[in-house]
Design a protein around this nucleic acid. Structure first.
Lengths: 137, 137
DNA sequence: ATCCTACGATGGACGCAATCCAAGTCAAGA
DNA sequence: TCTTGACTTGGATTGCGTCCATCGTAGGAT
């Protein structure tokens, strides 16, 4: 992701200090942060950055396909900087933690034509749920 | 689902008029309603029913496995009374319409032990996305 | 180097979904 | 019929995210 900023410039992004910091936060931690966590880490470097800017920037990165938005049931969305390798997610129903996983098979192939109801199906998203080791106790 | 109330009594549920109405609403419409839509339909029969009770009752039905909660990105959750048969969802990225589908295979079996990171994995949720016939253009 | 201006940042108000809480109500067993 | 604690109520509150009017500034133009 080190050339992320280059790619964004190429797409006509105005490179502000705020956007740079948000991108660096995502680049630095390969975990799935919430928008608030991104904001907190960004504010450590750029104290005046606003939450709205973090939300705007994350939304733009999602639109550009650089980051994936992961909706965890009823909690804050998390942002996954690992957008260039296809993968699925394993979510802890206790604490909301997320791990990337790479299951076998291709779920798209498991949906027969007669189950598609005329849809042009383009994506299959699999979310595994369970308790992580810390929450099992 | 006509014997839903019987099953719930068997599990020690106190059968109140509010719970009966919520169950009847879900039983009557085999579509995916939001909590507010359930509340509106319930209030047509029992005007004083409160939102909190609808939320409580829906949550209990989900916990008991009688109803499935479907999180649609950023919008209100929807409640799927078709819990008797396992199924997944096909969502139109254009208009948000949802269809129940029954894919082949068992996605849980596609997640090898070394990909589970110590989690107690209990559920695999598959969401297919694409454009429905009306939105394909 | 300086100027311009449109794009981006700000932060507080706002909106929606959902939960919490203390007080009142009532289903159902004794 | 009485009693009890599970259930309901509705207003307040929380959590997450968006909106908007205003201010600031990146980067092209001169």
């Amino acid at each position: 992701m080190s050339d992320l900023l280059e790619r964004l410039r190429g797409r006509g992004w105005r490179l502000t200090s705020q956007r740079r910091v948000v991108a660096e936060v995502l680049d630095g931690e390969h975990v799935h942060l919430t928008a608030d966590e991104v904001h907190a880490r960004a504010a450590a470097r750029l104290p005046e950055i606003s939450r709205a800017t973090v939300y705007n920037t994350l939304g733009e990165l999602v639109t550009l396909g650089e980051v994936i938005e992961v909706a965890t049931d009823g909690r804050a969305k998390r942002y996954d900087p690992n957008a260039h390798r296809p993968h699925q997610h394993l979510v802890c129903t206790g604490c909301g933690a997320i791990r990337d996983v790479h299951p076998l098979g291709n779920p798209l192939a498991d949906l027969p034509a007669e189950q598609r109801f005329g849809f042009t199906v383009s994506q299959a998203e699999v979310t595994y749920r369970g308790l992580c080791p810390d929450c099992t106790g």
